[in-house]
Design a binder for these strands. Structure first.
Lengths: 152, 152
DNA sequence: GTCTCATGTAACTTTATATGTTACGTGATC
DNA sequence: GATCACGTAACATATAAAGTTACATGAGAC
């Protein structure tokens, strides 16, 4: 399974947007993320539908934040992406007729459910505003203002 | 990402083997698992290297259990498979230069690590013997002996 | 009104990986 | 030495994430 990085990506975008005002075009964001504008639009679509960001067409258009960052958790963002699978492993067969497989599934499912629940809970505890704080800490330790957050 | 089901698969195999004595050929196991003998050999290789099972060539050969089922946990089996990734999500970039991405990664990594640790811990609590107990419960509720555990 | 810009979205391509399959080598039993 | 069963490399297939192209739609700019 290729590793899904949409959550990581969309958080990166949101945090960049929080650093400065003004609409950002998909192309601008795509450059900062070293990816394609269409990919940006794709991962932002769910956030727009939930009202976390707004998008405007035409001249001067682009993406703008439209939510209180302290009220949106990483779990909310995850949900906005359509709640993709969290675990890389799964059962060979769901609802198997084989009793052996049922026994295996039951044991694994329990562990899987617990892990997923914990992960969701952790994501629910972190808001976008907290991510911003973490970023400011990192910027501060540079002892410089005005330095780009983007640095190869 | 396609979902990895090697753990589920290998547990299924081991539990089947625990139900009756005697070496099982890869082909027999493959039929029971509705897959290919080579796949069986592949997922069993790690277990053999760790001494959980033995394999014999030639006439009357095949796979045999070689461990105390009450001493081997699902976590041990997972490790025998080479500890494949547990989570379906990951960071877009490891060790990024971008401070924004660092802030995002730091937050996600914390949540990811916690979830992985919990999952491993849960897997560590369950032994193969316990899986066998679960199976016997299911068999018992059928109120019949001799009925195949394999039933479409 | 029309030109340009920016999003919206479908369709296609690329890449990664899990799984399935074929082929053949090695060693053990008959 | 014929057959059986594992060991393994090489190749094929399937699925899904991510990248790309193409074009439609709507909003300013002129």
């Amino acid at each position: 399974m290729r590793r899904d990085s949409k959550l990581s990506g969309v958080l990166h975008v949101l945090l960049h947007m929080a650093q400065q005002p003004g609409p950002f075009t998909s192309e601008t964001l795509a450059k900062a993320m070293d990816t394609n504008p269409v990919v940006i639009r794709r991962i932002m679509a769910g956030l727009r539908d939930l009202g976390y960001v707004r998008s405007e067409k035409g001249h001067g258009g682009g993406w703008t934040l439209a939510c209180d960052l302290s009220k949106v958790s990483l779990r909310d963002v995850y949900a906005a992406l359509g709640s993709p699978p969290l675990l890389a492993m799964g059962n060979r067969t769901e609802a198997p007729g084989c009793l052996v497989e049922q026994a295996v599934n039951a044991a694994l499912d329990q562990a899987f459910r617990d892990a997923e629940a914990l992960l969701l809970s952790r994501l629910g505890e972190v808001t976008l505003a907290m991510l911003g704080d973490g970023l400011r800490r990192r910027l501060g330790s540079r002892k410089l203002q005005g330095i780009s957050a983007h640095q190869a």
